[in-house]
Amino acid sequence: MSLIAISADSYPQGLDIAQRTAAALGYGLLGRELLAQVAADRGLPQEQLVQALEETPGFFGMRTRRQQELLLHIQAACLERLLADNLVCYGLGAHLYLVGVSHALRVRVLAEPQQRAAELAALRGLPPERAAKLLERQDQERRRWSSQFFQADEMDPAQYDMVLSLGNLEPEKAVEIICDAAGYRKFQAMTYSRKCLQDKALAARVLAKLMPRFPDIRLQASDGTVVAQVQSLKRDQRKKQEAVRELASQVPGVSYVEVQVIRDYFGQAAQSGR
């Protein structure tokens, strides 16, 4: 009765661990296959969804706001699936948005560094020394990516319940440890943690809906009640509140919407200066 979110610095090695863990526990595996469905359901290009999970917004890359939107769609779909217990989740960034859900065991798998470099060298056709250099840069990029979109450092061990290094553990042993931990009472689901997960799923759903129109919106959900905060100029306030309320109410599962307006003082100053 729990969830396992696995994050790894090497996609193939992490996937291997996730698959073995799911098989060992008899859990379902929720992975990148979900993206195809997200793409179909929401009319989004699948390659862009993968890109959003992997790339740091750069000068030539995808626009930050668009990427944030895509990530929210992934997050909403993933959290929805996770409501059904007994799942291993991999490759969807779940370790970053399951924070605070007590029955989600968040595991970081550190790949064997040389193997990781070799993988990269093979993928890009690079000499191993160059690949090692590139890895360092990739780690920096991941750090930027996670702090940009989830305000957390993916590389920070404190983010996880457990960090396993494949450099020191056989994959079988690592899987065994994860399975052991998953049985630990601390990570069992309960009414409170399921409610946390539901609230997060609802918030992500609403946010994915609202974000395109209100990029600066922030919201929380609890028991079908959504509390949103938007910035607004004084004269647009009422209109904006109405728009947010109407849009949010269309999301299934929302029973009540409260919209708090934060006065946009900068905007106000800019307007009055004209």
């Binding site: 605070g100 859900v101 007590s102 630990y184 009472r185 601390k186 990570f187 069992q188 309960m190 009414t191 409170y192 943690s193 409610k195 946390c196």
Partner: peptide, 19 residues
């Protein structure tokens, strides 16, 4: 209700934890 408190209660053998 907090995650740490919930996990502590479960570890100590609580059947469930409601906020």
């Amino acid at each position: 209700a907090m995650m740490s408190l919930a996990r502590e209660a479960m570890e100590k053998g609580a059947f469930d934890f409601i906020a």
